[in-house]
Each structure stands twice: as structure tokens, then as C-alpha cells.
Design a protein around this nucleic acid. Structure first.
Length: 721
DNA sequence: CGGCAAAAAGGCATT
DNA sequence: CTTTTTGCCG
């Protein structure tokens, strides 16, 4: 195999095939190339059978790419290799073994909306106020527990105080409902696989023998459960290669545990550690900026990326008055560069999906093609969810959650009353709604409804029969026709119903693509549904031309010649809710680092002096991250508003520019960056101004008590100096 | 029971 | 501001 284009460390990483290996791979250090070559090396030079190799990637897209690249390097066998995400891997394992845990092998996978409806149901049944206990928070609680591998019983036992005691009870109910429905949420996929391995050593041993060489990419973003799963699998052969960069850990909010990578050498004392610090992606200015920013984090192992590329153009700093102006600035630069670069070389990155709107509008007006990653997902649309629910019920009739969705869609005269009765009966006797229907004659449901219910069951059972012999596309057509769903939409004749029909047509291009790659078998529908449940936001990106719009999170692992990072304002990025917590702030800074290092040739950093947020005009000072980039690397700083408060070490301090002046009762005017004294809270500095007139509010960071939002007119504050 | 309008709530990143 | 929920009326 030809490794002549690799540097010394890369070669070593490829050839170190036995025993634990930690590859600390900086951004753009060619880690994907190393990983693919390492796998190819195992296959080609070491003659390891493909079936003994496992590679875990962060997204399905990355998995597909890796598969293709390995296939290009070796003559045969690549298709027997497992290259997938944690979740897809677990689905495959559970599909053949979850019966050991009492679930049906044709289990359903819950999406977040389904989760929410389960929790709401529980709250309702317990007569709890939805306003006091917001389902989102409870789902987060449950998710945390599962990522920590804490079972409901344990959670109840260990809960120290309210509301943990209550939420643990809800977790218990939740898990029981899922079990009865043979439904799994995303976290269950991992947790139950571990439980399966604990309970059935033979099954674990089978997979240990199968996966003798294990690779995990983006190891810094694994959570505790994923960590444990890998430990189980690797325990026998200990050929475990993990790749990651602690500076790019950005998923703490969903349980990622950075200590997994930091403590790898403790877990595997014999581990070989290789650092890849040569960057092949970015120009020197970009890399210097990224290094300068990440240097401000205290919780990290020192590391500095090198590049042989020259300085390249300086980073461009764009400042506008509003979010609309910001979008126009970005578009102007896109047009400027469109001669030299194609649109697909460019990406616009933002902190939150809500920021995309102004940019989208401006792109549309300027006739610039673009594609958006994430945001309102195609699969979240009502008609797609309805159709998916039909398919889920066909596969798993015990899935009450999906059944409830479709029982009266299209309208069949089966309203909430009837459904409640069925549910109550099901809960009392421990059967699913689907089964309860068969007894509906006896539980006080009116004759007319019983007839309709029987018709529905009959319809679904017929579809179930057919499903085994036809493609997914044919099944979709069959569902839309026999259930009357399409008829309902066609009868509506509104603009909305037309667009729904179009979306369903588009969905069929997805199914026909799937049908092209998959044979008809008993597994077909299950595979389709679990594939759909696990599609990641990045998965749809590969196609055609156009500027890419996405969150900085979604940009991980990607690269673009030109990158725009927008909304570099305190309160936006770093986000307001983390801005004064050191740990979380460091995670935001890592996110900035990830965003910066996506760029190859040129980087634009933009912000708006004020912008509309939730219907109010907010005025925020520039992001501290901007101030962390040395001025010498940046252009366009003339209108660059500076503020000494957050600037790091050597930065020159200037008087803050007054972006807005307001007056309070006593005739004192405030502007961003002003130092103030509050009667109770003491000294502070104004970080943001929101709204107008009497309702104008100030965000003030107080030295003693942190950030407070106060009314400019009434707060007992005085300007200092 | 179903449809629409008014009211209320939510508002960070995601497999 | 947008999306979801509630409540009322036909």
C-alpha cells in the first residue's frame, strides 16, 4: 500500500494496528485519510477479514463516505465491514437480540415528538401541571439518566429531593410505556445494548469475536454509555483505536464526556498515543486565529497546529446595523467571490437555526442558490409523520404512540372519546390499543365506532400481509391509497394540501432510492424505518451546488474554501445562557474553534449592532471571541467596535463606541460597555440593551451577582466615571 | 365531532 | 415573532 504521501505520525497511526491506540488529531490534520488508510491497511496488508473490523463514525454520511473511500483502496470485502454510527450499530445488534430483554424484535424507534407526547400523557395521568413540569426538561432528565446508565428503579432509589424524586417516578412510567409499546428512544438504543451484553454474555462474546479491530471517530464527543459500550466490545482483543480532538468537544449538552478522551491512557495503560498536529486544510492566518482563540481555554492539553500553507488573505471583519444588513454584507462578499469560487465552496455558519431566516431571505432576493442543513426537518412535516406512523404501525402494531396519530387521520369518526376508552382498556389489561380494538364490542364503545375500528384493523392487517412482498415505494402508495389519505389531501384543494402532496411525492424519491439499494425481505420495512429515524442533519448535504447554511455544530467534520461566521455578538455567540459560566463558556469557545477551522482559504466574521430577537430589538456588544483574535490577522477593523471589558491579555483598550443612547428617569444616558453601580448588586457593566422607550431593558453583568436584566427607567443604577 | 380563531407559550446546539 | 394549545361555536 502506498503511504508515501503521509507524514511520519500518520504512517505510524496507520501501522499501529495491535493494542489500544489514541490518535489526537487536530482540526484538518487528515484524520479521515488516516482512518480509511488504516482500515485498508488492516484488510490489505494484515489480511484481517472485513467482518472483523468495526468503525464508528459520528454521522451516517461520514460512514458512507468512509465505506466508499475504503472500497476504493482495497480490491474486495469492504461490504462485510461494519462502518456505522453508534446508534445504527446498536439498532443492528438489537434487531437480532432484543428479544432477550423482552422487547419485540420489530421494535419502533421514537422521535423527540413522540417522546414528548408520552411524557405529556404521563403528566396528565398523574394530574400534574404541564406548566410547572415542562416535558422538555423531563425528557432531558431521562436522557441524562440513560446516558449515565441509570435505570428507573435506581433513579428512584437515589433521588435525594424533589423534583428528582418525581422525575424519577415519571422516568419509571415512561420506560414502562415504551417497553409495552416495544418502542425505544435514541438513548435506549445504547443503554439497552449494554444491558443486553450484561445479561447475555454469549451475545457479547459473539460481537467481541466479531469486532476484533475497533475504531471510534470523534471520540471526544462520546457519552458515558457509548464509552461503556466500547469498553465491553474491546475488552477481549483490546485492539481499540480512538480518534479525537478535545478542543473540538461541543456536545456536552447531550452528555458527551470529554474525560473519555482525556483519560484514555488510564483506561488502557499500554496505549500508544500519536498526535497529528500538521494541518493540511487552512491558510496560516486562519489557523493562527483559531490557535489564538482556543488558547484562552484552561481545560485543555496544550497543542498547536502547524501549517505549511502561506498566510492567505486576512480574516475579514464585517459590521452591520441589523441582521438584515449583516445578511446583505455577507451576500455582497459572496457575489464578489463568486467569480473565483463556486457557491458550493462557501458556507455560512450560525449559532442557532433561527438566525438563518434573514440570510435565507437575502439569498433568495439575490438569486443565489443555497442549501440548508438541519432546521425544520423534512421528516418533521405532518404528512410525512403521518405516513411514517402508518408504516410503524404496520411493522409494530403494539406501537400505541403511532397508532394514536393515525387512528383518526384521515377523519374516520374515531375521536378522542373512543381512543380514551381503548387506551383505558389497554392500560387496565396490559394490552396495546390495537389488541384492545378487537375487544371493543364489550367496553362501551358505540356500535358505529366499533364497525369503523374493525374496518381500520382489517385495513392494517391487509397492509401487513402485503408489506412482506412489495417494495417500500409500493407500500407507501398502497397506504396512501387504501387509507384514503391521498384522497383527503386531493379533496382539500388548498395551497397547503398541494404542497403536502408534493412533499409526499418527494418522500417517494427517498423510498425509491432505498428500494434500489435493498432487496425485498422481512427486514425491509424495519431497516427503512430505522434508517429514517437515524438520519442526521448532515446526511442530506452532499448534493449539487449552492451556498451551505448550517449551525456551527452541524459543520463539524466538514470543510469549505470560504466560511462566513455570523452573529458574533455577546448573547448570541457566546449564547446568553452560558456567557458567565466558565465551563460552558469554554465549550462555546471550542465551538468557535470548530467553526474557524472549517475554513480553507478565507474567513469572514460578521456581526450586527442590533437585531430583532423574539420581536424585540436587541443591541449586543461584540463577541469576546472576536477580541481574542489578534488584530494583525484581521481586516476591516476600522468600524470595529471595541470594548475593554472582555478583551484578553495584550489587546489595546479603546473607548466603547456608543451604538445607542438611552435616558432614564433622572436623565442619565446609558450605552453598551458603560460601568454602572446598582444600589443592591454593586458594580457592573452593561452588556446589552433591549427594546425601546419605557420597556427598555439593560443586561448588566455584576461583579458579585452575575448577569441581571433590568428596566432602564426604574432600576436603581447610576453611571460611574 | 370537527374546524377555526384567539390566546398562550416558547425561545440553543442533536444522534 | 412563531408555533402550539385551548376554547368556542356550528
Amino acid at each position: 500500500m502506498d503511504l508515501s504521501l503521509m507524514n511520519k505520525e500518520q504512517k505510524k497511526a496507520i501501522r499501529t494496528t495491535e493494542g489500544p491506540l489514541l490518535i489526537m488529531a487536530g482540526a484538518g490534520s487528515g484524520k479521515t485519510r488516516v482512518l480509511t488508510h488504516r482500515v485498508a491497511y488492516l484488510l490489505g496488508e494484515k489480511e484481517v477479514p472485513a467482518r472483523n473490523i468495526l468503525a464508528i463514525t459520528f454521522t451516517n454520511k461520514a460512514a458512507r463516505e468512509m465505506k466508499d473511500r475504503v472500497a476504493a483502496l482495497v480490491s474486495e470485502g469492504a461490504e462485510n465491514m461494519w462502518i456505522s454510527t453508534f446508534h445504527s450499530m446498536c439498532v443492528r445488534i438489537l434487531r437480532s437480540n432484543i428479544n432477550h430483554l423482552g422487547y419485540e424484535n420489530s421494535f419502533s424507534i421514537l422521535d423527540p415528538t413522540d417522546q414528548k407526547s408520552v411524557v405529556k400523557d404521563i403528566l396528565k395521568r398523574r394530574n400534574l401541571d404541564i406548566k410547572q413540569h415542562n416535558p422538555r426538561g423531563i425528557i432531558g432528565f431521562i436522557s441524562d439518566k440513560k446516558n449515565q446508565l441509570i435505570r428507573p428503579e435506581e433513579s428512584i432509589r437515589d433521588a435525594a429531593a424533589y423534583p428528582d424524586t418525581l422525575y424519577s417516578e415519571i422516568y419509571h412510567d415512561y420506560q414502562q410505556i415504551l417497553y409495552r409499546n416495544s418502542a425505544l428512544d435514541f438513548d435506549d438504543l445504547i443503554m439497552l445494548t449494554i444491558e443486553l451484553f450484561d445479561k447475555e454474555p454469549k451475545v457479547l462474546e459473539y460481537y467481541q469475536n466479531r469486532f476484533q479491530y475497533i475504531h471510534v471517530d470523534e471520540y471526544q464527543d462520546t457519552n458515558h454509555a457509548q464509552y461503556r459500550l466500547i469498553r465491553q466490545l474491546a475488552a477481549k482483543y483490546r485492539n481499540i483505536c480512538v480518534v479525537g480532538d478535545s478542543d473540538q468537544s461541543i456536545y456536552k449538552f447531550r452528555g458527551a464526556d470529554i474525560t473519555n478522551i482525556l483519560n484514555f491512557e488510564d483506561d488502557y495503560p499500554e496505549a500508544v498515543v500519536i498526535k497529528l498536529e500538521q494541518n493540511y486544510r487552512s491558510s496560516k492566518n486562519i489557523l493562527d486565529a483559531a490557535n489564538a482563540v482556543i488558547k484562552n481555554n484552561t481545560e485543555r492539553k496544550p497543542k498547536a497546529l502547524r501549517t505549511d500553507r502561506d498566510g492567505g488573505p486576512k480574516l475579514q471583519n464585517l459590521v452591520a446595523d441589523s441582521e438584515r444588513g449583516e445578511a446583505e454584507e455577507v451576500v455582497r462578499n459572496i457575489l464578489d467571490l463568486s467569480g473565483k469560487y463556486s457557491y458550493s465552496d462557501m458556507a455560512i455558519l450560525y449559532r442557532t437555526n433561527a438566525q438563518s431566516r434573514a440570510i435565507e431571505d437575502t439569498l433568495v432576493k439575490s438569486n443565489i442558490p443555497y442549501k440548508m442543513v438541519g432546521g425544520i426537518k423534512f421528516y418533521d412535516r405532518k404528512e410525512i409523520k403521518d405516513l411514517m406512523s402508518y408504516l410503524k404501525v404496520i411493522l409494530n402494531p403494539n406501537d400505541d404512540i403511532s397508532f394514536e396519530r393515525i387512528v383518526n387521520t384521515p377523519k374516520r369518526g374515531l375521536g378522542p372519546k373512543t381512543v380514551d376508552k381503548l387506551k383505558a382498556h389497554g392500560q387496565n389489561t396490559g394490552i396495546s390499543i390495537f389488541e384492545a380494538i378487537k375487544e371493543s364490542d364489550f367496553i362501551g364503545i358505540p356500535k358505529t365506532a366499533v364497525v369503523k375500528l374493525m374496518g381500520l384493523v382489517d385495513l392494517l392487517e391487509k397492509l401487513q400481509q402485503k408489506a412482506r412482498f412489495i417494495t417500500i415505494t409500493e407500500l407507501v402508495d398502497e397506504v396512501l391509497k387504501t387509507t384514503g389519505y391521498m384522497e383527503m389531501l386531493e379533496a382539500e384543494k388548498t395551497i397547503e394540501s398541494r404542497s403536502r402532496i408534493e412533499n409526499l411525492e418527494e418522500f417517494k424519491t427517498v423510498t425509491s432510492e432505498f428500494d434500489r439499494d435493498n432487496e425485498i425481505s422481512d427486514d425491509l420495512l424495519f431497516t427503512f424505518l430505522s434508517d429514517m429515524a437515524l438520519v442526521s442533519d448532515q446526511d442530506g448535504v452532499e448534493d449539487d451546488s449552492g451556498v451551505t447554511l448550517m449551525t456551527m455544530h452541524a459543520s463539524k467534520g466538514l470543510e469549505f474554501k470560504i466560511v462566513f461566521i455570523v452573529g458574533l455578538e455577546e448573547g448570541i455567540f457566546p449564547s446568553r445562557r452560558v456567557a458567565y459560566d466558565d465551563k460552558e463558556l469554554e465549550e462555546e469557545r471550542r465551538l468557535m474553534y470548530v467553526a474557524l477551522t472549517r475554513a480553507e482559504d478565507q474567513l469572514f466574521l460578521s456581526r450586527a449592532n442590533s437585531r430583532m430577537i423574539y420581536g424585540k430589538t436587541e443591541t449586543n456588544m461584540q463577541s469576546r471571541f472576536l477580541a481574542e483574535i489578534p488584530e494583525t490577522l484581521m481586516d476591516g477593523g476600522s468600524s470595529f467596535e471595541q470594548n475593554g471589558f472582555f478583551t484578553s491579555n495584550s489587546r489595546k483598550k479603546q473607548a466603547p463606541k456608543r451604538s445607542r443612547v438611552v435616558t432614564n428617569n433622572s436623565g442619565v444616558s446609558f450605552s453598551i460597555g458603560d460601568k454602572v453601580e446598582h444600589k443592591k448588586f454593586g458594580d457592573g457593566i452593561i452588556s446589552a440593551i433591549k427594546g425601546e422607550g419605557d420597556s427598555q431593558e439593560l443586561d448588566i453583568i455584576f461583579t458579585k451577582v452575575g448577569v441581571k436584566r433590568l428596566l432602564a427607567n426604574f432600576a436603581p443604577i447610576e453611571k460611574k466615571e
